[in-house]
Simulated scan of single mutants.
Amino acid sequence: MTEFVGLPLTIKINPRAKRVLVKLVPGVGLEVVVPRGFDHALVPDILLEKQRWIERTRDILLAEGRDLSGELPDLPNVIDFKAWDRVYQVDYLERSGPVKVIENVARLQVSGPVEDRRSIFEALQIFTAKKAREVLLPRLEFMCRHTGLTYTALRIRRQKTRWGSCSARGTISLNAKLLFLPLELVDHLLLHELCHTRQLNHSKRYWALVASYEPDYLRLEDEVKHGGKYVPRWFT
């Protein structure tokens, strides 16, 4: 069995796993994590039991613009950071050795083994995460001044699904993918996490706090759900 309900299927063995875990992973497809020694012949029956959940989750992720094909995308010729209003033209230079990304005004020169797309994508993701911090940190500070809300630390991560999170200590973690979203959605997500520094939940009080700063939050929350359509496949 190489696919299920039109999704590429991967079975991964995790020695620390105590039970079977079925998940849909952007850029990968359907992934089944099993403990060491698990009988793989049982996987089809497990997938049939979870078929309705898999199909429902698949449709949600596809509607959000997530890629579940499991196929490597082509190398990008253009990178559009909407939150930064910056568009880079990307040039590739075939060279041996590790992949390097050099920024020159509105162009990026990527040197390395061009056929190794995974390594190039990884280098571009690292570059994006670096730029995300440069762009999002000042924007977060701006939102703090605008709202009077505060935080203790900022972390930039390369997560598969979550746009951001806030810890009980006030540490805000933001997904580097935010750089691809329109600024209006980025600002809303920053506000979303800043409000969690006051209400670490999604209670009525929390949403009332959000609404006090952004009355149009329901529309923005709905648009954020489909924010994956702005993220290029090489970053999913």
Score class of each variant (00 low, 15 high):
Trp84Val: 08
Ala17Gln: 04
Arg86Gln: 14
Val28Trp: 01
Arg155Ser: 07
Pro26Asn: 12
Glu31Tyr: 06
Phe180Lys: 03
Pro138Asp: 07
Arg117Asp: 00
Leu124Asp: 00
Val105Asp: 13
Val99Asp: 03
Arg233Val: 15
Glu214Lys: 08
Leu154Pro: 03
Pro35Glu: 07
Arg233Phe: 07
Pro26Arg: 12
Arg56Gly: 13
Pro35Met: 04
Asn104Asp: 13
Leu191Ala: 05
Leu190Ala: 07
Thr152Val: 08
Lys160Gln: 14
Leu190Asn: 04
Arg162Tyr: 01
Ala41Ser: 14
Val224Pro: 10
Glu64Ser: 15
Asp45Gly: 09
Ser173Thr: 10
Ser173Arg: 00
Gly37Ile: 12
Leu174His: 02
Thr152Trp: 00
Leu124Pro: 05
Thr152Gln: 13
Val114Tyr: 00
Gly6Asn: 05
Lys229Met: 12
Asp74Ser: 08
Ser69Val: 09
Pro35Asn: 03
Thr236Tyr: 00
Ile60Met: 12
Asp80Trp: 06
Thr161Val: 14
Leu218Lys: 14
Val5Cys: 15
Asn77Glu: 10
Phe4Ala: 10
Glu193Ala: 09
Glu214Val: 09
Met143Gln: 07
Gly65Gln: 02
Phe121Thr: 02
Val87Arg: 14
Arg198Leu: 14
Ser69Gly: 09
Leu179Tyr: 02
His192Val: 05
Leu149Val: 06
Lys100Glu: 12
Arg205Glu: 14
Glu221His: 10
Asp80Phe: 10
Leu61Ile: 04
Val32His: 04
Tyr92Lys: 06
Gly148Val: 12
Arg95Pro: 00
Thr197Pro: 04
Leu179Ala: 10
Val110Leu: 12
Arg118Ile: 09
Leu137Cys: 04
Arg233Asp: 12
Gly228Arg: 13
Arg133Asn: 03
Gln199Arg: 14
Ala168Ile: 08
Val43Arg: 02
Leu61Gly: 02
Val135Pro: 00
Gly164Met: 07
Val186Pro: 01
Asp45Glu: 14
Ile102His: 09
Asn77Gln: 13
Lys50Tyr: 09
Lys12Ala: 15
Gln109Tyr: 05
Asn77Leu: 13
Ala106Arg: 13
Ser173Gly: 08
Gly29Asn: 06
Leu72Val: 12
Lys204Phe: 08
Trp84Gly: 03
His196Met: 09
Leu75Phe: 03
Lys50Ser: 15
Ile79Thr: 01
Phe235Ser: 08
Gly164Ile: 04
Tyr92Ser: 07
Gln125Tyr: 00
Leu190His: 05
Gln199Phe: 15
Pro182Asp: 12
Glu184Pro: 01
Arg52Gly: 08
